[in-house]
């Protein structure tokens, strides 16, 4: 068996605070192949921090420890900063929540995409410009030339997120971490943006880590789902198997969604139990996948 794209073992992220150490991520283990992996959990469950930790972007005083983080068999945990820089963008990239804040307001869209590309590829300005225009076309922007010269405040949220995707995919990374990529967008453009991202990721045979709090969305767009609770993975299962979830937290999440097909008087409220924090991880039963 070939090494997975990304292999994470016992990842922990700690923040020392005045009232003791806050454990944002408490021992996460997973493998990512050329697939779409959904990471679902409520706010503060450590899902975003997991993404940052893989990229080596947890700022001090935060501390990342792990048994190992391997990128295609090569250890990347605690690499020196200059080697980590070569991995960021070029091999692992990330799309963040709100393009209104994640694009630099005083640089043109084109300059930002060209920059992402030229940081890793030996390319002339003209080549980079062409690449940027191609990428804008690839995310189905109708008038790439005009958008290339615009500033982020001149484009809509949906277009901004497509620009973000174009920018992050320009250096051709192996893995894309999408951290709530559609949470800030209008419902009407969410699916469109996701489809575009999904197609690009599939066509390039990339691995996708899709971080979201939206179970339905994840079920729709991912192959496999990790359910996180309080900094740990409580359950992992195939997206198609979501209805067979065994963990009470996952079941609770599913039950708290409104349904169209049956009448429900009152949506059940999730009742958290202290034992979930440290219980065994539930994995699919043999033959379940």
């Amino acid at each position: 068996m070939t090494a997975p794209l990304l292999s994470v073992r016992d990842l922990r992220v700690n923040f020392p605070t005045r009232s003791g150490v806050f454990e944002a991520v408490r021992g996460i283990t997973f493998d990512l192949g050329r697939e779409r992996l959904g990471v679902v959990g409520e706010s503060g469950s450590g899902k975003s921090m997991t993404g940052r930790a893989i990229l080596g972007l947890v700022r001090p005083p935060g501390k990342v420890t792990a048994e190992r983080i391997d990128l295609q068999g090569q250890p990347i945990l605690n690499l020196p900063e200059d080697q980590m820089r070569a991995i960021r963008g070029q091999r692992i990239s990330m799309v963040m929540q709100d393009p209104k804040f994640s694009l630099n307001p005083v640089m043109t869209v084109g300059a930002q995409i060209m920059e992402a590309y030229r940081l890793h590829a030996r390319a002339t300005r003209a080549e980079a410009r062409q690449k940027a225009l191609d990428m804008l076309a690839a995310v189905q922007i109708r008038d790439p030339q005009r958008v290339f010269d615009s500033y982020p405040h001149e484009v809509s949220g949906g277009m901004g997120q497509r620009i973000m995707i174009a920018m992050m995919l320009a250096p051709d990374p192996d893995i894309l971490i999408a951290d709530e990529p559609t949470s800030a967008l209008d419902v009407s453009v969410r699916t469109e943006v996701l489809r575009i991202m999904d197609r690009l990721v599939q066509d390039r045979g990339m691995g996708l880590i899709f971080i979201s709090h939206d179970l339905n969305l994840v079920a729709q767009f991912c192959d496999r789902v990790l359910i996180m609770y309080a900094g740990r993975v409580v359950e992992t299962l195939a997206a198609s198997d979501l209805h067979n979830a065994r963990h009470p937290y996952t079941q609770g999440l599913l039950n708290s969604l409104p349904r169209l097909d049956t009448a429900v008087d009152r949506l059940p409220v999730l009742k958290r139990e202290a034992s979930w924090r440290d219980a065994e991880i539930l994995t699919p039963q043999p033959g379940g996948l």
């Binding site: 972007l57 991995i87 963008g89 990239s93 804040f101 994640s102 630099n104 920018m167 992050m168």
Partner: peptide, 26 residues
């Protein structure tokens, strides 16, 4: 502490470039 600074770091640029080219211009 703005988001676009994280974007800049994700792109894999040096901290100096993050500071002068991205943050300082703002």
């Amino acid at each position: 502490s703005a988001e676009y600074i994280i974007t800049a770091r994700v792109k894999g640029m040096t901290e100096r470039r993050v500071i002068w080219r991205h943050a300082f211009r703002n």
